[in-house]
């Protein structure tokens, strides 16, 4: 039983990371109806940038680990946001209105490009980072069940929660959020009513990329090893999470992420660790077959 609860905690941590990436997929899909295949690579860039930034800040900043981490987090968000903006601007915006498959293929191109760019720039070997945040607390639940939760896991939960709340507030309350919801419903009409659609789409990519950057930093700290290839599988899993939650729905993406994280961790714990990716893909196929609109999505009707 203790093992089970421990796996649930680990799964939820993983799920929080997937959920943050999934938000980027779901927002972009909601607004321009495109699968941003390169989103996983932005997350990978985030992992690398955060590692580099952390090393830089911890060498110039002196002793404080917390300060270095905070600075690295901000720098990571800024730089991944910049990458997201540039990718949208150069590879996707010119293709708005092109045949449906064109942006997807362009996105695959961006994905291959970024992967190989990082491989060449930083080398193909895995980059290890010794644990930065150590220790944790032990929860005594009685009945001889004692759960250990590391500080890092708590940080990841809190950060995800903060970002989610902030993000929901932006979408629900600010004028930017209003413009975004309007564009999502009807891009042409929103443009006629004075919404700067291009800017809204850009902002969507920027926010999504910044969140993926945070996820990248979390994974760097949590696993302690990264390489240039982590974006591909994580991207597909996050996409699965977005589909599972109902693509276009923000709480759905987060819930989907948590479910995928749980599945993966329980599957590895009880069945087989080699086939954990197969479990995720099976969920993806299953959801698309039996409930394409996901848990929270609206069923979309194809019109002539």
């Amino acid at each position: 039983m203790e093992y089970f609860f421990q796996q649930v905690i680990n799964g939820l941590t993983l799920g929080a990371i997937y959920g943050l990436i999934a938000l980027g997929y779901t927002m972009v899909y909601g607004i321009i109806g495109m699968i941003n295949f390169a989103h996983g690579e932005i997350y990978m860039l985030g992992a690398f940038i955060s590692l580099i930034a952390y090393l830089v800040f911890s060498s110039i900043g002196g002793g404080s680990v917390a300060l270095a981490l905070l600075a690295a987090l901000l720098v990571t968000m800024v730089f991944t946001a910049l990458w997201g903006w540039v990718v949208e601007r150069m590879a996707y915006r010119p293709l708005r209105g092109a045949p449906r498959l064109a942006p997807l293929i362009s996105a695959i191109g961006v994905s291959i490009l970024l992967q190989n760019f990082v491989q060449i720039a930083q080398g193909a070997r895995v980059k290890p980072l010794p644990p930065v945040i150590q220790g944790g607390i032990t929860l005594d639940l009685g009945a001889e069940i004692a759960l250990s939760i590391s500080w890092l896991q708590i940080v990841i939960f809190l950060l995800t929660l903060t970002l989610m709340v902030g993000f929901t507030w932006i979408i629900a309350r600010t004028s930017l959020g209003r413009a975004q919801r309007a564009t999502e419903q009807d891009m042409k009409m929103a443009a006629l009513l004075g919404v700067n659609v291009d800017r809204v789409v850009s902002t969507t990519f920027v926010i999504g990329a910044a969140l993926a950057g945070v996820a990248g930093m979390m994974v760097t700290l949590y696993y302690g090893v990264i390489d240039f290839y982590i974006g591909f599988i994580a991207g597909i899993k996050a996409f699965t999470a977005a589909v599972l939650g109902g693509i276009g729905s923000l709480p759905g993406a987060m819930l989907g992420g948590l479910l995928i994280g749980l599945t993966e961790s329980l599957w590895s714990a009880y069945f087989s660790i080699q086939y954990k990716d197969v479990a995720t893909f099976a969920i993806l196929v299953g959801v698309l077959l039996f409930r394409p609109s996901g848990l929270f999505g609206r069923p979309d009707v194809e019109k002539v």
């Binding site: 449906r100 996409f239 893909f281 196929v285 698309l288 077959l289 394409p292």
Partner: peptide, 28 residues
């Protein structure tokens, strides 16, 4: 048979997943 009802880009991702599953199975 099961996946061809899906719309274009969903189909793309499902086939991608299938390709990966085959590779993982071959590997393990």
């Amino acid at each position: 048979f099961p996946v061809l009802r899906l719309r274009g880009d969903y189909l793309a991702i499902v086939t991608l997943g299938f390709g990966e599953i085959i590779r993982i199975v071959l590997q393990n």
